[in-house]
Amino acid sequence: MSDVTVTRATPQGMVTLKLPPGDVAWGPALAALGLSVPAVRRLERAGDRAALWMAPDEVLLLVPDPAAALAALAGPLAGAHHLAADVGAARVVFAVAGPRAREVLAKLCPVDLHPAAFPAGSARRTRAAQVACMLWAEAADDLRLSCFRSVEGYVADLLTLSADPAGSVGLFRA
């Protein structure tokens, strides 16, 4: 009956990659993982891997095997001033899916989540109530929220409350 589901995704390998903006190593580094460089506030996905734009000098890589990804990055990054680190253990990912997914997140984040303003493939960092988080849209009605593991319980409670059918306000309905 539910028109939104909130699930904690299986542990997601994450590698953060920092390079100076516009560095020549960006393209080869991401190509080593079969990815292209994401545009500003965009998600680039290729199968089970994805690159999320975080900042002009930072991309977050979603990979199944962080150790293998770091090994693959070592060659293209040799000689470049960079930082590549496995940060997956620090974070959790929630999948918020269904026709009401955007409304559930819009109640928590100061972000315009209208499908026209945040289409599939969008990514952005923001806050959920009182904690930092990042959002991305895998599809129009399949959104993901990632936060630090230390605030997992708080965010799970927030999402549960926000997704309560009694709190439906009918935003973003076609």
Binding site: V40, R41, A55, P56, P110, V111, R124, T126, R127
Partner: peptide, 12 residues
């Protein structure tokens, strides 16, 4: 000017 997002005060 880096993200291009129009955001509200609480994000800054």
């Amino acid at each position: 000017p880096y993200c291009g997002v129009t955001a509200e005060e609480t994000e800054f």
